[in-house]
Nucleic acid binder design. Structure first.
Lengths: 163, 163
DNA sequence: ATCATAATTGTATATATATTCATAAATACG
DNA sequence: CGTATTTATGAATATATATACAATTATGAT
């Protein structure tokens, strides 16, 4: 009796779940159950709840509505690749100090974010410097924090709640 | 009346939510509601459900039990950093072909995974080559796929459902 | 200002998900 | 082999989350 006689059924189901989630958008455990049924796996929502927890599968709010289950290894990529893939989606926070704004983003994305900001040619920004996960924004002399925020938010509404 | 008179309350709440989730483990919307209450934000579970969707905050099954809400920018790191941070956690799948096993993992992790595998000095493996997200494993002549799987799974049970 | 339109929110409720409990199957151990 | 112990599962249910609806408030255009 080798190791494969144990938990054959559950592991196969787990494999199938991974496969399904990698290739299609599943938005409820019942939907997953039906999909598995098509593949010959008869099971219940309760078991799937446990399976998803065991596999540490995450539930992500969809772009406009609904939810999607995904492997955690897919999350960042699905978030940045799926729909609006602006580098701004990688932006985490913006803090102001005197004539500088410090924008924190995901590792390795700072150059893209800086390039994007440069492309906007905003009057209030006289230049940017990108590291790995940080963009330093140099603000034009005479521009107040409030003015900067206002301009930034009006051009980039998606940053509204990060500044 | 400037732009900041609009949606002050909601944006402030969103900011607060981000801040809370970045620094603490919240496992239900009610828990989040209580935390916000402490900060002076009175709201309801329904609103938080909508907020979490708007902010595209994900729900991750915890290591042993329960669930955690997290910013999507935290997911990969929280997954690999939080508990057992073996490079194997970045491993997505293993496929076999003749004397080769192709292990797919998260981008940039292949070298760590390969190093880890080398360290195991498994008889059935005569060598590995790491790309960026793929490790090529060369299997010793005469070892069957079943034997390889059996050895791999017995040494690395966490890969059980990826091969 | 005044009206029309759009956004935000709470209440109540529907829906989805997790968990308890009982049971069966698998494994470990004698 | 037989018994003890763990693991997996389903049914029923508790809990958590999403949403329809109505009311309120904000925004935009005269």
């Amino acid at each position: 009796m080798n190791i494969y006689t144990i938990m054959i059924s559950r592991d196969n189901r787990h494999r199938a779940i991974r496969g399904i989630l990698e290739t299609s958008k599943i938005s409820s455990q019942n939907e997953l159950r039906e999909r598995l049924e098509d593949l010959g796996f008869e099971t219940t929502q309760a078991t799937l709840s446990r399976d998803l927890a065991a596999l540490r599968i995450v539930r992500i709010p969809g772009a406009d509505k609904g939810y999607v289950y995904a492997l955690s290894s897919q999350v960042t990529s699905s978030f940045s690749l799926m729909e609006d893939n602006s580098p701004l989606n990688t932006c985490k926070s913006i803090a102001l100090s005197h004539n500088l704004a410090v924008l924190k983003c995901l590792p390795s994305f700072a150059p893209s974010v800086a390039l994007f900001l440069d492309g906007l040619e905003m009057d209030v920004i006289i230049g940017t410097v990108a590291g790995d996960d940080t963009v330093l924004i140099i603000i034009r002399e005479g521009v107040t924090h409030e003015q900067f925020r206002e301009v930034l938010v009006s051009r980039l509404p998606e940053l509204r709640d990060r500044i």
